[in-house]
Amino acid sequence: MSKAGMLYIDSDTLFHRMDGAAKLIVLAVWTVVVFLFQDIRIFVPLFLIGIIMLLSAKLPWKRIRLLVWLMIVFNIFNSLFTLAITPAYGSEVSGSTTVILDLGYNVLTLETVVYVLTLSMKYMSLMPITVLFIYTTHPTRLASSLNRVGVPYKVAYAFSIAFRYIPDMQAEFRNISNAMQARGLGFGKGEGTLSQRLKHFVSIAIPLVQSSLHRIETISNAMDLRGFGKHSKRTWYSATVWHREDYIVIVTSLIVLIAAIAWRVQGYGTFWYPY
C-alpha cells in the first residue's frame, strides 16, 4: 500500500474516466459470469480480454506485480494441494478416467490435471478486472459508487472511514509494536514459542484496540458536529456524472449477463474435458 493508503494510480484512460458505479457493475457481472461456468474455453478468452483491458489502463507493472505474483503463487499452491488431496476428482466430474500416476492412496488422473488447470484459469480470469477496478478507482469515489449501486450510504461511508484510517492505524501499530519489542515482546518468528508469540500479539493488540475505541469516539463526535446522518440520504462531492461510455459499458455488461445466464440454463458450460 502506498503512503496514502490507497492503491489508486492516477492516469487518464477510459477506465480512469469511467464512473466508479459503472465499474462496480462490470466487476459484478464479470464475477457472476465466471461463477456460472466451469469451462476453460470460456476462462481463457475472458482472461485475455481482461489482460487487454488491463494493458489499456497503462498501469505501471512495478505497482501491480505484487498482486499478480500473489495470484500465481496462490494458484500453484492451490493446484498442488488439490492434486494431493483429491487426485481423482477430475474423473468424478468428467466421468472418464485416464490414470497417469499411482500415488498409493489414490491415483492421479489426467482429468484432474485438466480440472486443476480449469480451476486456475477460473481464478486467473477474475484477476485482471479486479486489479483494474482497484487501481483505477480513487477511494473517494468508492463510497459514492457503492451508494449509487444501492448500498445504504451509512454502510458505504464505513468503507470510506476504513480507507481513511488504515494508514494512521498502521503507523500506530508499528509504533506500539516497536516500543514493545524494545521491552522484549515480539511476535515474529524466533520470538519464543507459538503461545508466547500469541501472548505478545495480545500485548500489542490491547493498546491498539483501546486507542481505536478512543478514535471511534472522536471521529463520531466530529461527524455529528458536521451534520452526518441528518437526512436519509446524502450527496457526494466526488460523484461523477455518467457519460456515454458509462451507459454503453453498463448496457453491454447486462446483455452479456443475460446471454450467459440463458446459455448456462440450457446446460452449456459445465466442466469441459477435451478427450
Binding site: 451509512k154 476504513a162 492505524m169 493488540a205 471511534i216 463520531s220 455529528d224 446522518g229
Partner: peptide, 18 residues
C-alpha cells in the same frame, strides 16, 4: 447512529490491517 458507522469503519480497518 454515527458511532455505529464509525465503529464499523474502524473495526474493518483493524480487521483488514491485522
Amino acid at each position: 447512529d454515527t458511532k455505529t458507522v464509525v465503529a464499523i469503519g474502524i473495526g474493518a480497518a483493524l480487521y483488514g490491517l491485522l
